[in-house]
Simulated assay, not measured.
Amino acid sequence: MASTRATKSGFAAEAQMKINSKYNDQHAHEVLDWIATVTGDSIDTSGDMDSLHETLKDGTILCKLVNQFQAGVVKKVNTSTMAFKCMENINNFLKAVTDFGVPTQEQFQTVDLWERQNLTSVVICLQSLGRKASNYGLPGIGPKESTKNIRNFTDEQLKASEGVISLQYGSNKGATQSGINFGNTRHM
């Protein structure tokens, strides 16, 4: 577990401090509040790193959250506190999130949450999932995602552009470099 590891030092400590400096308590509070609303659980929504980690660490709330999106998407939620069972819950959550359309660059790795390595990425993943919530009839967080706006053009409209010469092809108007002669001419 993370509590039995030695404290980081040197470059590792600097890198961890840089990662931790990006953490935003307000965003974490919004995400935890949203999770409490969707799941109906009473959880600590203070938003500090400790409360976020302790609330989500075992993965049961995350599995319950994605099961609100689609019933039975996580078939078995492990209630054991053994490390690998908790990490399996987190991994099942990540598989479900991928199916719901959260991009992989907005997801986190299991160890980011379990070992508290990068809680900022956990918050980003949950915010991205929160934007998808309105597509499943649940209250969402953050800006509403855009929808398709398909346009159909007639053949006449498409052919109208063929008579226009783009400026990318150049122009014979305007200033040219003809007649420019700087300095002395080249003598052979």
Rank of each mutant, 00 (worst) to 15 (best):
K76I: 06
A15D: 05
E106P: 00
A133F: 05
I19H: 00
K76R: 11
N181F: 10
L126E: 14
D48R: 00
G40E: 04
G130E: 09
E156T: 10
I150D: 15
F84A: 06
G140R: 07
W114G: 07
S46R: 08
S178C: 09
L158S: 08
T79A: 01
A13P: 10
S9G: 02
L113S: 09
I141N: 09
G47W: 07
S42I: 13
G10K: 04
C63F: 05
N20A: 10
T120F: 00
E106R: 15
A12D: 10
G163W: 01
V74A: 01
G72Y: 04
C86R: 03
D25K: 08
Y136G: 07
F182N: 09
F153A: 12
H187P: 09
K8L: 15
F182P: 06
K95G: 11
I90S: 01
K132T: 10
S134D: 11
Q105L: 08
L62Q: 00
S42M: 12
G174K: 09
Q105F: 14
G137D: 04
N135E: 14
K18N: 06
K8A: 15
N118Q: 13
G140S: 15
T55W: 00
A71G: 03
I180F: 10
M87W: 01
C125P: 03
A96K: 07
I180V: 10
L52W: 04
L129H: 07
N20H: 04
Q26E: 13
V123N: 09
Y169C: 12
Q105Y: 14
D50E: 14
E115R: 14
E88C: 04
N92R: 07
Q107Y: 10
Q68H: 06
E14W: 08
N149C: 12
V123E: 07
N172Q: 03
K64R: 13
N92G: 02
K85Q: 10
K64W: 03
Q177W: 05
G47K: 03
W114H: 15
L113I: 09
V123C: 09
K144L: 12
V38C: 01
Q105D: 15
T120P: 01
L113W: 11
M17S: 13
E88F: 03
L138Y: 05
T79I: 01
S51K: 14
Q168L: 08
S3H: 14
Q117C: 09
Q109R: 11
V97N: 07
